[in-house]
Design a binder for these strands. Structure first.
Length: 491
RNA sequence: GCCCUCCUAGCUCAAUUGGCAGAGCAGCUGACUCUUAAUCAGCGGGUUGAAGGUUCGAGUCCUUCGGGGGGCACCA
């Protein structure tokens, strides 16, 4: 039976665990202070001559990835979250107890090593162990030592195994953290403060998406998990917090795909007395800071395509792009509708602006190489955006596209409470309510009546940015624990 | 939700037109104090995702179910 085979592998390891106990050791280890990152040890080794036999003493800790027994000496490959390094353990050097420990090691075990840094006869940088400290037993066998874990399902379901057996996965997900840190650094340098707003909301506003519903028992009310933090952040502008940002999860009850996970990380920022041009500058600074953090420069490739992130990026109007790529005058509703039908879009009963929008998405989104700021959207699509003073049919909004992926969305924020209230009530023909951003939020409108400063607002999808900067094809590769259907669940 | 596709040992993968389920790694036993995916000798490990069906015979063909990946739809 498969179960028995697995258990026999486990029991062989449990037997060694008992052997460690027999040596008077705790197989689950304890505190191990002052160990040095293996990456740092390696860096020190760079400056050493290969003939330096007895280098500095070092203390490292990590997981045993490889083992090469050689009689009364053993070579171990130890890995921590920075690097891997070879350790040589000799029976004469570590003594009877140390050798007994070495004899009980399995691939996957966690150990600490005190030793001297040097090189072997073949020139490999190696820690020559003086002492071995057992830190934790792995009673399950790790994946194959050369291929690692390749099965996608297991890599997502057992991310911890993926992380320790596939260094690339670890680097990608650490890279994600570097991007988030870079965002915080850049925002601080621009004088923004980080805030936290409700993720459970009575009205799921600020974006067009179907929400998740949850229930609060004590109040006996249904609440929505937020689809965007937007409306609360703008209320902070009213309150006088002039530069705020939030990095947090939002939840959208929609399909899964290589670009969509039901919960994802949204960055939003609001700057009093700014506008959408200020947000474009900020976007460039944030992406530049992220690129600096993950390395690799402005010329990047993603899924085989190359792109240039050297700022500033092109800024083209929505209408220009429609004329250029769809070959149709965006002001000519009949021509737009004809072109849309050519592209296979149903036009009957839809507002001309909705048809234009669907044509844009069908024809243009994937044609935009980027990075490119698409600016000045048709006003009816943007119920939260200030209209251009010179033209009320155009909203001061931009979206940032890179290789067909929408990375950022920003507005000059609408701060006229009467217009806001009116726009919340308007429902475009052909748009079901849950697909509209227009959801009446009385609290928000009331807040605007206390005067919200004219402002620029920006939203960036962190997951997608990380995907593009770290050249991952699937959003699941940049989320530590992507949503998976529970295995063996009934119905 | 629909379409395509995948699921074989702990892991990575084989298995000819339907014809005895295999290998490497990992594991176990032994040898080895400078190896590099160490090597050498030997040993164990399987309800081929699940359940049915066709057939003399199914890992392979059919049906249903479960899970994954990709696409469509929806969206960021």
């Amino acid at each position: 039976m498969a179960e028995e085979a697995r258990e026999s592998l486990e029991s062989a390891r449990v037997e060694k665990l008992e052997r460690l106990k027999g040596l008077g050791l705790d197989p689950w280890g304890s505190r191990f202070d002052n160990h040095e990152a293996i990456g740092s040890v390696r860096a020190r080794g760079e400056g050493m001559q290969p003939e330096d036999a007895a280098g500095p003493t070092v203390r490292i800790a990590g997981r045993i990835m490889l083992r090469r027994g050689q009689g009364k000496v053993a070579f171990l490959e130890l890995r921590d979250w920075t690097e891997r390094i070879q350790v040589m353990v000799g029976k004469n050097q570590v003594g009877e107890q140390g050798w007994a420990i070495t004899d009980s090691l399995d691939l996957g075990d966690l150990i600490g090593i005190d030793g001297r840094l040097g090189h072997t006869r073949t020139g490999e940088l190696t820690v020559f162990a003086d002492r071995i400290t057992f830190l934790a037993k792995s009673v399950l066998p790790p994946p194959e030592k050369w291929h690692g874990l390749t099965d996608q399902e297991q890599r997502y379901r057992q991310r911890e195994v993926d992380l320790f057996s596939n260094p690339e996965s670890l680097q990608v997900l650490l890279g994600r953290s570097k991007v988030v840190s870079a965002f915080r650094r850049v925002m601080a340098s621009f004088g923004f403060v980080e805030v936290e707003t409700p993720t459970m909301q009575a009205i799921a506003g600020g974006a067009a998406a179907k929400p998740f519903i949850t229930h609060h028992n004590a109040l006996d009310i249904n609440l929505f998990l937020r689809i965007a933090p937007e409306l609360y952040l703008k209320r902070l502008l009213v309150g006088g917090m002039e530069r705020v940002f939030e990095i947090g999860r939002v939840y959208r009850n929609e399909g899964l795909s290589p670009r969509h996970n039901p919960e994802f990380t949204m960055f939003e920022a609001y700057q009093a007395y700014g506008d959408y041009h200020a947000m474009m500058d900020l976007t460039e600074a944030l992406v530049a800071g992220s690129i600096e953090a993950v390395g690799g420069g402005y010329q990047r490739s993603w899924c085989g395509a190359t792109m240039d992130f050297t700022p500033p990026w092109p800024r083209k109007t929505y209408h220009e792009l429609v004329a250029e790529h769809a070959g149709v005058d965006p002001h000519d509703a009949v021509a737009v509708a004809n072109r849309a039908r050519e592209a296979g879009i149903e036009t009957a009963g839809k507002d001309p602006v909705v048809v234009l929008s669907e044509l844009f998405e069908a024809v243009l989104e994937h044609a935009l190489a980027g990075p490119v700021f698409v600016i000045d959207y048709p006003a009816p699509l943007c119920p939260l955006t200030k209209r251009k003073a010179s033209n009320p049919d155009v909203a001061e909004r931009f979206e940032l596209y890179v290789k067909g992926v929408e990375l950022a969305n920003a507005y000059t924020e609408l701060n006229d409470p009467y217009l806001q209230e009116q726009l919340f009530r308007e429902q475009l023909a052909g748009l079901p309510p849950e697909e509209s951003m227009a959801k009446m939020d009385e609290e928000f409108v009331r807040a605007l009546k206390h005067a919200m400063p004219p402002a620029g607002g920006l939203g960036i999808g962190i997951d997608r940015l990380v995907m593009i900067l770290l050249d991952r094809a699937s959003i699941r590769d940049v989320i530590l624990f992507p949503l998976m259907r529970p295995k063996g669940a009934q119905q």
